[in-house]
């Protein structure tokens, strides 16, 4: 693997537009970095802030939320709710020290495969610049780093 930091992004897509845009990017062979892993939801309105926090807690370095353009939602207006939740979530995460740049909301219609690929590309580079988030994944540790051993020396040092 290349030596530089390879971020892992989780992308939430909406079944009717941004997932189809990802498929379209595929059929059109538009290349984008493999750092992102997409999850299909029925609509951007289905996105629960808990999913974003779960992804970050599990070790993702950034989360990309995509949905239909306002006014073009297959379920008429549910992407507005996604927008409201995103704006509130970003504030809470910022207060918890997570750079707002790690969470992004992007509108992409079913025809905008190229745009989605470009957005993914830009976000991967942005998160790469921010460096790893690597939230400690295993909680058995008592608050120090993941490995318990390392914490022992700290006590005695």
């Amino acid at each position: 693997m290349s030596e530089q930091f390879e971020p892992i992004l989780v992308g939430f897509t909406c079944n009717w537009c941004s997932y189809r845009a990802a498929d379209l990017a595929g059929t059109a062979r538009v290349k984008y970095p493999p750092n992102i892993r997409l999850i299909r939801l029925m609509c951007s309105g289905r996105l629960d802030p808990a999913f974003v926090m779960k992804a970050l807690a599990e070790g993702a370095d950034g989360v990309l939320i995509t949905g239909c353009h306002p006014g073009e939602c297959h379920y008429l207006e549910q992407n507005y709710k996604a927008l409201r939740r995103f704006l509130l979530l970003r504030r809470t995460l910022e207060q918890m020290g997570i750079e707002p740049g790690r969470i992004k909301l992007v509108w992409a219609s079913a025809a905008e495969g190229v745009k989605l690929a470009h957005e993914i590309n830009t976000m991967v580079e942005e998160v790469r610049a921010m460096g790893p988030l690597n939230w400690p994944k295993r909680w058995e540790s008592n608050g120090f780093h993941a490995t318990v051993k390392e914490q022992e020396q700290e006590v005695t040092a």
Partner: peptide, 23 residues
């Protein structure tokens, strides 16, 4: 699973505006 996420989602979903600046 996450108490705060439930509240964020609930409060945000019922904000009565679609314009980002107003939100």
């Amino acid at each position: 699973v996450d108490y705060g996420a439930r509240l964020m989602s609930a409060f945000a979903s019922v904000i009565d505006s679609n314009d980002p600046a107003e939100i």
